[in-house]
Nucleic acid binder design. Structure first.
Length: 821
RNA sequence: GCCGGGGUGGCGAAAUCGGUAGACGCACGAGACUUAAAAUCUUGUGGGGGAAACCCCAUGCGGGUUCGAUCCCCGCCCCCGGCACCA
């Protein structure tokens, strides 16, 4: 090192180390290495626009964490792949008039280039591409495992249909009655669809949330989605065949009657149930409807089943029709009318409710609209028991039962229990738990996805494609545009869909639907370690070593879709004896999102950041560190062009510290102490993903290091280079090499924290008078209270506030002294 | 409506088993270097008052607990995200 200080040239340094890492295999993981650590990040959809700065933000956080784990002595596996099937790609291909089989490889190549440029420690030998037959062969295999276990089934179902994308959508993909992709109002259509029985797993999917180490926001979203509610099913008997209101004096039990089961979370309010409501599609409706009401009821049913979901969900106006029938309220023993209305959903609970207008807003609205009786059966403390209700009373914390016979005076909770117990004794009620989670509709009438591996034979019926015959390859279709028919474009290619029946060999017909993209991504983490194996989906030994995933990082936009499906598929494979764990991700952290100028980045806002531009101008290391510095990783932040210079300045200062470094002296005590504190801080912050404060701590250290005219010593800068390495890997490698090291800095051990070197003998003890800080005194760290007090009183600036005798002295050793007067 | 997360300088943000509020960075001001500018270095910067030493106010709003509250409790307001005619 001569007098000339070499200039930090990011472009040259980064180019050099990309090549070097490749040549040396620095990022190639030894899957048999010690202390395996699987650091997974959500794989991207390779869009034509290229890598988004938001992707880079997400990946960089994971990369820092992974590199840190490696320097802690772990063998770290940090794979990345491409989620390239799906409507997004297909629509883009349609728009551009390019076939997806051409488009996707092009996009992937561009992504790969940008990702490598970002300096990620990814082992590309273990990548996946969901559109590769070598991958989707196993996606089809996963489907067959569910089929075999009775967890995949086909049924005619009212499904969400997007008229723009011309496809079925899962409930998860319908936001406020509209398609999450294009915003078009969703219609209801009845089609034959494939479903997975995820609802059967609802209790486990919910319960496990109590012990997995995930972001609270994500767990809350899943809990909301699964939607558990505790309550009771109560039986109401409805006498049949009468065209007149039954005589209450008549013995209802002797009449032929229908059992109407309702679900309620408020059995305590049963004395206030003044009518029943069935969903229009409820199967008992034809049986109970009286002759006189038949025309009105049929008209209403016809209308509401045709009605699309939007009208039904967005306009909350209450409509309904009286069936003419009555049911016996098993608690109050009175006859109450039975109505049908579309505010009661067939898909949830029993498709029937007991309406308690006094204590439920919806029932209140309905009762008001149709002039049905509103009875109060819960009253608040000190409230007149029979005070009329202008609005439904829903305070179930303080409420007490009234007008409820023997149950009067009980709390909501006790009342519920006692009433259910009493009804249960005569078989009229059962305690039940309901979930809002519906089965997962996985079929899509589109082109760009894995064909569902099933064949229909006139003789043998539905036959699963044998595993040995997988993959069922997606044929090349010139015209893959979807149409309104509700049938997949694959149904146009007879040469493809006519196939021999696997059982009898006679010509049969392939399933022409493809599966949902979310199935591709529900198991990809199992594939990464085993990409070398083409005979199994996942190698048992490798899976035992590497899974479950140690750390998973991704966006919260996948909190309910991808994460829930992945957990479900894992549980199924666990139950099938193929995995020895049932939760795929031990730890999950949701990262935040990068916005710019206070708005989400989008082409319409014109505020999209192309990472290439910033890597050209500042270097990848600077961009990485800046993204991590601009805000808390789990909250995201605002990308501001102006602020990036501060991070570059910091790296410049690290660079010149190394360039000027000397080997001929002792490290300075204050610098050493600060260094130790920084080692501790950075080592604590990285596992917490608190990257912004870790960078701030390193900046503080560099400020101390560069203070004054002195030349830094090796022992002062060498650990610094290791600390910055996860954040700025290229420049750290370069500096590490310039300091004389041959091996990669990532094969060095993270600097050890030495508490003795970090400790200081003296400190500035804050002194408060009456709780207000009035100054500090320089005292030994382990000073006793009396000495601290004496020191404070010896400081005029503090003593002058002590105007009388102290009544109390609060002393927290090492923290503060408070003199109370 | 229910469930999460959040509200701190001009800006991005630190600090929560209760203990000097505003670390670090941006921007801005002053100075050094320079013919000059850029870069770099030094230094200042929450608001108000004061010549100054200093004083007062301040973590969305209003109360409370405490020697001491950004942090805990009660009652509100606002922003972001999830769920939503789910009984």
């Amino acid at each position: 090192m001569a007098d000339e200080i070499p200039v930090y040239d990011p472009a040259a340094v980064e180019q050099k180390w990309r090549t070097r890492w490749h040549e040396r295999g620095t990022n190639s993981v030894d899957l048999a290495g010690p202390r395996p650590y699987y650091a997974l990040m959500m794989f991207p959809y390779p869009s034509a626009e290229g890598l988004h700065v938001g992707n880079l933000f997400a990946f960089t956080g994971n990369d820092i964490f992974a590199r840190f784990q490696r320097m802690q002595g772990h063998t770290v596996f940090e794979p990345l792949g491409y989620d390239a099937f799906g409507i997004h790609s297909e629509n883009y291909a349609l728009k551009m008039g390019v076939h997806p089989t051409e488009l996707i490889p092009r996009n992937i190549a561009n992504f790969r280039r940008q990702l490598e440029r970002g300096g990620l420690m990814v082992d590309w030998r273990h990548s996946v591409d969901t559109t590769d037959p070598a991958y989707y062969k196993w996606t089809q295999w996963v489907f067959l495992q569910l089929l075999r276990r009775g967890l995949a089934y086909k049924k005619k179902a009212a499904v969400n249909w997007c008229p723009t994308d011309k496809t079925v959508l899962a409930n998860e993909q319908v936001i406020a009655g509209a398609c999450e992709r294009c915003g078009t109002p969703v219609e209801q259509r009845t089609l034959e669809q494939w479903f997975f029985r995820i609802s059967e797993y609802a209790p486990r999917l919910l319960e496990n949330l109590s012990w997995i180490d995930w972001s609270e926001t994500t767990k809350a979203a899943q809990r909301n989605w699964i939607g558990r509610s505790e309550g009771a099913e109560i039986v109401f008997l409805a006498p049949l065949g009468g065209d007149r209101p039954p005589d209450p004096n008549e013995n209802a039990a002797v009449l032929d009657s229908a059992e109407i089961r309702v679900f309620t979370t408020r059995p305590d309010t049963i004395f206030g149930a003044t009518y029943l409501v069935l969903a229009p599609e409820h199967p008992l409706v034809p049986a109970i409807t009286t002759t006189g009401q038949r025309p009105a009821v049929s008209a209403y049913r016809a209308r509401s089943t045709k009605q699309d979901l939007v009208t039904r969900r967005v306009s909350r106006e209450k409509t309904g029709v009286f069936t003419g029938a009555y049911a016996l309220n098993p608690a109050s023993n009175t006859l109450i009318p039975i109505w049908i209305a579309d505010y009661v959903l067939m898909e949830y609970g029993t498709g029937a409710i007991m309406a308690v207008p006094g204590h439920d807003e919806r029932d209140f609205e309905f009762a008001t609209a149709f002039g049905l009786p509103i009875v109060r059966v819960v009253a608040g403390d000190g409230e007149e028991a029979h005070s009329p209700l202008a609005v439904p009373f829903t305070d179930n914390e303080n409420g007490r039962l009234v007008s409820s016979g023997e149950f009067d005076g009980l709390s909501v909770r006790d009342g519920s229990q006692r009433i259910v117990a009493k009804l249960a004794a005569r078989g009229a009620a059962t305690v039940v738990v309901n979930y809002r989670l519906y089965d997962w509709c996985i079929s899509r009438q589109r082109y760009w996805g894995p064909p569902i591996p099933v064949v229909y034979c006139d003789l043998c019926g539905m036959v699963a494609v044998p595993e040995a015959d997988l993959p069922v390859r997606l044929p090349y279709l010139e015209n893959f545009k979807p149409d309104d028919s509700g049938v997949s474009p694959l149904a146009r290619d007879e040469s493809w869909y006519i196939a021999p029946c696997p059982e009898c060999g006679k010509p049969a017909r392939r399933e022409t639907d493809v599966s949902d993209t979310f199935l591709d991504s529900a198991w990809y983490f199992l594939r990464y370690p085993s990409t070398d194996r083409d005979d199994v989906a996942f190698d048992p030994a490798l899976t035992k070593t590497w899974l479950p995933v140690d750390s998973y990082i991704g966006g919260n936009e996948h909190a309910v879709l991808h994460l829930l499906y992945s957990r479900f598929i894992t549980m199924v494979l666990h139950d099938a004896g193929m995995l020895d764990f049932e939760e795929p991700f031990q730890r999950f952290r949701a990262h935040g999102h990068i916005i710019r100028d206070g708005a989400k980045m989008s082409k319409t806002h014109g505020n999209v950041v192309n990472p290439d531009v910033y890597m050209d101008q500042w270097g990848a290391d600077t961009l990485r560190a800046y993204l991590m510095f601009l805000g808390p990783y789990q909250e995201g932040g605002d990308f501001r062009d102006q602020s990036i210079s501060g991070v570059r300045r910091f790296l410049d200062r690290v660079w010149s510290s190394v360039a000027q470094m000397r080997d001929d002296g002792e490290p300075q005590e204050e610098v050493t102490r600060k260094l130790q504190q920084t080692i501790r801080k950075v080592g604590e912050d990285i596992p917490r993903l608190s990257f912004n404060t870790a960078i701030a701590a390193m900046m503080e250290y560099v400020n101390v290091l560069r203070r004054g005219e002195r030349t830094p010593q090796r022992a002062e800068v060498e650990p610094l280079v290791q600390l910055i390495a996860p954040f700025a890997p290229h420049v750290a490698e370069e500096l590490w090499e310039r300091m004389g090291h041959v091996a990669s800095v990532f094969d060095s051990s993270w600097p050890a924290f030495d508490a003795r070197l970090a400790a200081e003998d003296t400190m500035d003890l804050p002194v408060q008078v009456r709780g207000k800080t009035r100054g500090t005194v320089r005292v030994p760290r382990d000073i006793a209270q009396a000495d601290a007090y004496a020191a404070a009183m010896a400081t005029p600036a503090i003593a002058k506030f002590v105007t009388g005798e102290p009544t109390k002295i609060v002393f927290v050793p090492g923290r503060l002294l408070n003199i109370v007067l």
